[in-house]
Design a protein around this nucleic acid. Structure first.
Lengths: 150, 150
DNA sequence: CCCCATTATGATATAATATTTCATCATCGG
DNA sequence: CCGATGATGAAATATTATATCATAATGGGG
């Protein structure tokens, strides 16, 4: 019995592997496994939470194991890092270059990713007015989500 | 002989004390000292860099000493935390509630604060479309500054 | 097919960042 | 003066991240 969520994850993993291949990068078993953990988590996961899970099936896993995998996944734009939480979530639009914009609920801890093209372009223009060439933009908005406001 | 920069810092410290007082908070000697270190630094400082400097004049300083001071200063909106660097800088507009928007040069390490009202309001609207009530927004744009682009 | 350059992983140690906890001390309003 | 609150001291520990060196897999040229 494979759950719907699990099937969805598998599809995402297949797609991720394709996208890596297109960039000449390989989504190895290990990296694929870590990405799977993040996809299945349903919320932000810290590096050491991921490491604990990884250890269940991957005996000798150590901090560098997980950080190297995360570096790769971030490089491939499959995963975002939420700086405010020291945590990691899947990209909503895997593999695409897009500004990371997060809503972080301080009550329930839920993190959701949004995409405001208006904000992204305003930021880009503001940066370029200073002569600054932006490469990677992170927006993290902490507050209270709709569910917790009731 | 008091340098111009030093005089400017003093003025900022006086103003900071006033603003704290207005909120019923006290800028104690210790906190004032830490704020002074950040103002004089001329760039982002990590907690432990600040701690090292603090120790020169403040014998028993320990990690909680500096983190408590930083928490206070952030609470009073006198200092920003740059999540991507685990580092701290003074607010450009001390004591005001404003979204923190930073340009971080990955070549020279310089951090500058910008203020794009357009981006801030686009983000606020995007958040509220999701029913999210924003409380604190951080934008960190990593890239290459004008000076380093030449 | 083999070589070897490159990339990936294993393994250990350690560095850097941050918090918990409990005790003590100041301050200030009643 | 007293008690409540807020601030600091001090020690231990938790959490996050990197450095380093060794070993193994992989994948193009010859």
């Amino acid at each position: 019995m494979i759950s719907r969520a699990r099937r969805r994850t598998n599809a995402q993993l297949v797609r991720a592997a394709e996208m890596c291949a297109q960039h000449g990068a390989q989504l190895t078993e290990l990296r694929r496994h870590v990405l799977g953990l993040i996809l299945e988590a349903g919320g932000p996961m810290t590096a050491y939470q991921l490491l604990d899970r990884l250890k269940r099936t991957h005996k000798g896993a150590a901090p560098p194991t997980i950080y190297r995998a995360l570096d790769f996944l971030i490089e491939q734009r499959l995963v975002h890092r939420i700086e405010r939480l020291n945590a990691f979530v899947p990209c909503v639009e895997a593999g695409h270059l897009h500004p990371a914009q997060f809503l972080i609920c301080s009550q329930c801890g839920v993190v959701s990713e949004i995409e405001s093209r208006a904000a992204a372009s305003a930021l880009e223009h503001a940066a370029e007015r200073e002569g600054f060439r932006p490469r990677s933009t992170v927006v993290e908005i902490e507050g209270v989500c709709a569910a917790c406001r009731t």
